[in-house]
Computed example of a mutant assay.
Amino acid sequence: MKHIAIIGECMIELNGKPFGSMHQTFGGDTLNAAVYLSRGCEANLNQDDIKVSYITALGADPISKGMLERWQQEGVSTNLVLQDSQRTPGLYLIQLDDAGERTFLYWRNQSAARYLLQHPDFNQIKQALRTVDMVFLSGITLAILPEQDRIELLNILVELKTQGVEIAFDSNFRPALWPQDENQTVKNSYQAMYTLTDLALVTFDDEQLIWGDSSPEQTIERLTALGVKRCIVKLGANGCLIQDATIQGDINPDSGTASAPRAVPTLPVEHVVDTTSAGDSFNGGFLSAYLAGEDLTKSCQRGNAMAGVVIQHRGAIIAKELTQAAITAI
């Protein structure tokens, strides 16, 4: 069995118009990925071959308990979720425009997940991480932590990598979560993270905003120079660009440099309703194939299919039956 541990934050989600009708659920980039990963495993009849554990901290309130119950119903293990009786989950509001693009308002500064590493039982998490095959986290995971906790988490990842744990990372850049210092803090943090990353699942728009990359190819070149072996650059409606430096065919034998990246297109979506979880659902679909042993192309095709369905419906986590057909069709 492959065991992946996903570290991050899940918040209460409000979706609708201010002072109008609101739909309340939950969501968070890494939690969304965990749910769609679990669904991908179930749809492909390999649920028992991949264990998905979510690592975070929640409160002792009824909403926190309700979240745990729903994650368990989705097949996500909650054994590594810590309870913080002094804090509650964060909250965010999604507002959509006519094209399905969204803006967010957040209330998360005192969320339980922000203080995960300061929890008295966090050492149990550190011990458990040594037994997993892969750790996946995002730029948001790093951004919400106090600076010293972020440094500690990076040091933990260094240790895990030396022990053979595969590290996967989605940069998922949210400027409002980082200090307003011309991206210097985020650059330093991401630079350190990429030197530890085996599998990068990044979005070109984010990388361009941080680093000023002129093309997805430049993004891949920069990441591979930092030691990332497998690069996936998500391009929205244009699918994604991939490169696997562990495959001999992706390396030029004469120069020793990486060959040109390969494009994996996606099917067009005529009616986009909500792009809230596009990248997260891609990550979940991708990882459900990747951890089952598929190559990057097949894994990206599954990620594309999952995201293509999710963006046609409102909310970060859509009804399960809507995603199953997308996975089984690949």
Rank of each mutant, 00 (worst) to 15 (best):
S21I: 09
T56H: 01
K65C: 10
A200S: 15
Q47S: 04
Q312R: 13
I125G: 02
Q127T: 12
K298S: 08
A143G: 03
T257Q: 11
D149R: 06
L14V: 11
Y92F: 15
C10T: 15
G303H: 09
T88L: 11
S38A: 12
A316D: 07
N252H: 00
S288Y: 00
A319R: 04
Q312W: 03
C240Y: 09
A112I: 09
Q184C: 06
D98S: 12
L235C: 11
D181L: 05
Q180D: 13
W107C: 13
A5N: 00
F122M: 11
P120I: 01
D61N: 10
N46W: 13
Q324C: 08
G236P: 01
E294Q: 10
G20F: 08
A34E: 03
D97Q: 05
L160I: 11
L296A: 09
S214D: 10
S215T: 14
A278S: 09
R130I: 04
E152V: 02
L37M: 09
E101R: 14
Q248D: 08
Y106F: 13
W211Q: 13
W107K: 12
T224K: 08
Q83I: 15
G249L: 05
V269H: 03
F26G: 03
T266R: 02
S64L: 13
P265A: 14
E166G: 04
A60R: 13
G16V: 00
T224C: 11
Y290W: 10
K298P: 02
W71M: 14
D61L: 08
S171A: 15
H271K: 12
G308H: 05
T185R: 04
P216W: 02
R230F: 10
D213M: 13
A113C: 07
Y190N: 07
Q73F: 13
A112H: 01
V269A: 04
P120N: 04
P175D: 11
D170V: 13
E182V: 00
G59C: 03
L14A: 12
I55Y: 02
S189Q: 07
Q148T: 04
A57T: 03
G303W: 05
W178T: 04
S38P: 10
V76I: 14
E147Q: 12
Y54K: 02
S255H: 03
S281L: 12
A5S: 02
K161E: 05
Q208T: 00
S138I: 00
I220M: 14
V52I: 13
V35W: 12
T275L: 09
I232G: 01
T257H: 15
T276V: 14
P216E: 08
G285Q: 12
N155C: 04
K298N: 07
D121K: 13
Q191N: 14
Y290R: 07
I50L: 00
V135F: 08
R314L: 14
K51T: 08
L267C: 05
R222H: 14
R222G: 07
F26Y: 15
N283D: 08
L93S: 15
L31Q: 10
E182P: 00
V310A: 01
A112Y: 10
G75T: 09
L96A: 01
G279C: 09
W178V: 04
Q243Y: 10
R114L: 12
A33D: 05
S277R: 03
P89E: 05
S53E: 00
G212Q: 06
I55W: 00
A33K: 06
E159F: 00
L14I: 06
P146A: 08
M193S: 11
G27R: 08
I251D: 02
D213C: 13
V35A: 08
G284L: 07
I140T: 12
Y290G: 00
A225C: 03
I242V: 15
